[in-house]
């Protein structure tokens, strides 16, 4: 089974009220170094078999028609999940 990851973020020029609330809460926990936060969405689309170039193209089409609204959001990433590498090791 293959998996495609789609990431959607609010456009830079659109205010992100949820991100604003998050960045307001961080200092209360002592995290004073973070000066901004924006909140987006991550989708994981599953397919039978391999993630081919065609599957990725279809995933992008789905991302641009249903998973995001181009008025307020950008699709920032469409990728095969198996090619992802963990940047921060889990503890």
């Amino acid at each position: 089974m293959g998996r495609v990851v789609v990431e959607v973020m609010p456009k830079p020029e659109i205010l992100d009220p949820q991100g604003k609330a998050v960045v307001g809460a961080l200092p209360r926990l002592g995290f004073t170094q973070f000066t901004g936060a924006r909140q987006g969405k991550r989708f994981e689309l599953e397919v039978d078999g391999e993630v081919t170039a065609e599957i990725l193209a279809d995933a992008r089409k789905a991302a641009e028609t249903l998973l995001s609204n181009p008025i307020i959001e950008d699709v920032v990433r469409v990728a095969d999940a198996s090619s992802e590498t963990a940047e921060v090791p889990a503890r």
Partner: peptide, 17 residues
């Protein structure tokens, strides 16, 4: 209607949440 593109723009969460 905005999602269907019959009207322009979009709605996001209220400023005060």
């Amino acid at each position: 209607l905005t999602e269907a593109h019959l009207l322009p723009g979009s709605m996001i969460k209220n400023e005060h949440l």
